[in-house]
Design a protein around this nucleic acid. Sequence first.
DNA 1: CCGCTTAGAGAGCAAGCGCTCACTATCTAT
DNA 2: ATAGATAGTGAGCGCTTGCTCTCTAAGCGG
Lengths: 209, 209
Amino acid sequence: MTATERRTQAQRREGTIGALLEATVTCLTERGYAATSTAAVCAEAGVSQGALFRHFPTRQALLVATAEHVATRNVAAFRATTGGAAVDSVDDVADVLAHLRQAVLSPTNQTWRELLVAARADADLREALLPAREVLHTQMRDVAADLWGDRLSADDLPAVLSIVVNMLDGLAFSALDPDPAAAPGRTVERALRLLAELIVHRYPEQEPR
Amino acid sequence: MTATERRTQAQRREGTIGALLEATVTCLTERGYAATSTAAVCAEAGVSQGALFRHFPTRQALLVATAEHVATRNVAAFRATTGGAAVDSVDDVADVLAHLRQAVLSPTNQTWRELLVAARADADLREALLPAREVLHTQMRDVAADLWGDRLSADDLPAVLSIVVNMLDGLAFSALDPDPAAAPGRTVERALRLLAELIVHRYPEQEPR
DNA sequence: CCGCTTAGAGAGCAAGCGCTCACTATCTAT
DNA sequence: ATAGATAGTGAGCGCTTGCTCTCTAAGCGG
């Protein structure tokens, strides 16, 4: 009946671990941190609680593993969509910002944000997430440097990065409706356009003053 | 011994309700949403659980009342510090942004943010928070209009507002360390300066193009 | 002073939580 | 084939949660 039955131990292991991580991601995005109980994750993954606690000694370990599993994925995805894109005109930069907005609003990034918020109230989790945070941080710095490193000064680059990602993160937080269809009007588009102008105007050739 | 003993029923009522709201604020800011249990709030307020559930039918009712209690306070405080301030030069606007940053990072605003995040995973709470959200939103729009209404176009004003408050909110979320002393360097100052330049450059007289 | 209503106390309950443990199923090395 | 290791099950334990309920304390109108 069932097609592939015979699996090595390592395959079984990786299979359920992967299922658990994926289940944790979906639970976090659509239920939030508090409601992501071990029972809920196991139900979502189609696995018993014993299986979970065989591979992860504690709930927090599962969450940290999920964080690390998810942290760098979006940076890679964003790099893939904007690799080698031009950033000369305001329209070019606005394009990049639109892609970045999509990346920030993606479910995996939503997962990451949920964990960051929970870490604020939980010192242990905060410490456990620190390495992943640093990895993500340097990756974003690298992406920014690849995009604008030779156009913006060493002072402006981190400042622009801070403005853009914090603004998009804040946007993701204040957009309460979980479904992404609820469009908040064209204000956001206008805002991103202004940011694109800000960035291009900092280019040395056409610095406004 | 004890000085003022005789209190009318209304005084007693308002006293414990106020204590409960204050206790909820401090619990939310220093423990987070999940750990703000009714027991914790009662302990912080020096009141029994029975007292809490006499005045608030449910935990959520307490949280919503706290949200409404806190929502408009910061707008008023911000208005007080920047009332009638000049916004002509880049320095003027940077000053206003610095004050706004202080307001956004304040404990009561932290409380508000905690509730907003929790509302994302809880449909009931989301709906209950909606009126307060709208009040806050129009108040912020009014403040922005008072500050920059006659300098920025009707298109730019909401966009600028979105950039600034979302950026500061995102900053508050990603600054994980609960103590405000952990300075992330001068990047934020630089970022706010760039935003101030962006705003002033949108003034019609000196529009760059 | 006395009946009535409201404020407050605090033990206790059902439900859900993270996690354990005794057990079975499956793979692997001899 | 068989023994040992690893993967997976699911009942259940101790604990915390939001909330209820009974009871006492206190203000109020007559």
